[in-house]
Computed example of a mutant assay.
Amino acid sequence: MTGARATLQAQGTVAHNLANADTAGFKAALANARSFPVEGAGFASRIAAMHVDQGFDARVGAQRVTGNALDVSLRPDRWLAVQAADGGDAYTRAGNLSLTPNGQLLAGGGRPLLGEDGQPLAIPPHQAMEIGHDGTVSVIPLGEGPQTLAIVGRIRTVEAAPERLARGADGLMRNAQPQQPLAQAAGDALTTGALEASNVDAAGALVQMIQLQRQFEMQVKLIQRGDDNAQAANSLLRLGG
């Protein structure tokens, strides 16, 4: 029963990965099951299964050139800092940025992008905007010439190895060691005009889902067979009585 439950949970993880196969910057979630002994009276031979969240696949997804000035692709171990729904800091590699009518810069998924000062980035009215490889945002004000190009802010891009991050229920990453804040990435952190695709292997995920489905069916049949054996044993006991 515990094995069937763990298999069902793993299948949910694979389904979630498949649903995000086209989401920019998405990192496939990893899931597995491990056995653990059941404590209590009796022989120490009872083993149950438990679903284990193994984090995420940190491999960089395929790069796709878009030519869009608001599309950015991050270097390995670089993450965009965004404001989560609870007001705290979170991190994503979804580089399909967008600009709201009031000038707020949003990351993929619609979360406000943070600047170096930790506050949401607001872009003043402009006729042209450029994002540098170090995350600096420059604009040409309305009605002005190219010589008036000025830096209005810098996107907060942090450097974090996969083990420093944990995925939240909203799909955003959090610092797994809050007592050690993540530092601003030095040097070139991103490339403009390109997007990182999801690293989900759709074909492999489909195969994995089929395998999990067959495993679940086998585990359910074992439960049913155990129930049949128990009923047969009870019948024999009644006949013997």
Rank of each mutant, 00 (worst) to 15 (best):
Q9D: 15
A10T: 11
T13L: 08
A15N: 12
A15Y: 08
L18G: 08
A21L: 12
G25D: 06
K27M: 04
L30A: 05
A31G: 14
N32F: 03
S35Y: 10
P37A: 11
A41Q: 14
G42R: 11
F43Y: 12
M50N: 14
V52T: 12
G55Q: 06
A58V: 02
A58T: 03
G61N: 06
A62N: 13
A62Y: 06
Q63V: 09
Q63W: 01
G67N: 06
N68W: 01
A69W: 01
L70S: 09
L74H: 06
R75V: 12
D77R: 09
R78E: 05
A81F: 00
V82W: 01
A84T: 08
D86W: 02
G88I: 04
R93A: 03
G95N: 02
L97F: 01
L99G: 02
T100Q: 09
G103P: 11
A107G: 02
G110A: 03
L113T: 03
L113H: 02
D117Y: 04
Q119I: 01
L121N: 02
P125W: 00
H126C: 02
M129N: 11
M129C: 11
M129K: 08
I131H: 01
I131W: 00
D134F: 04
G135D: 07
T136S: 15
T136V: 11
V137F: 03
V137D: 09
V137G: 08
S138L: 09
P141A: 05
E144G: 06
G153I: 01
I155S: 07
R156V: 05
T157L: 07
A160Q: 04
G171D: 10
N175V: 04
N175L: 08
A176Q: 11
G187P: 13
D188P: 14
L190G: 09
T192H: 07
G193H: 05
A194N: 07
A194I: 05
A194E: 08
E196H: 03
A197R: 05
S198D: 06
A202S: 15
A203W: 05
A205R: 06
L206S: 10
V207R: 08
Q208P: 11
M209T: 09
F216R: 07
E217F: 05
M218G: 13
V220K: 12
V220R: 13
R225H: 14
D227K: 03
D227R: 05
N229F: 07
N229M: 12
A230T: 13
A230D: 14
A230F: 12
A233F: 03
G240Q: 12
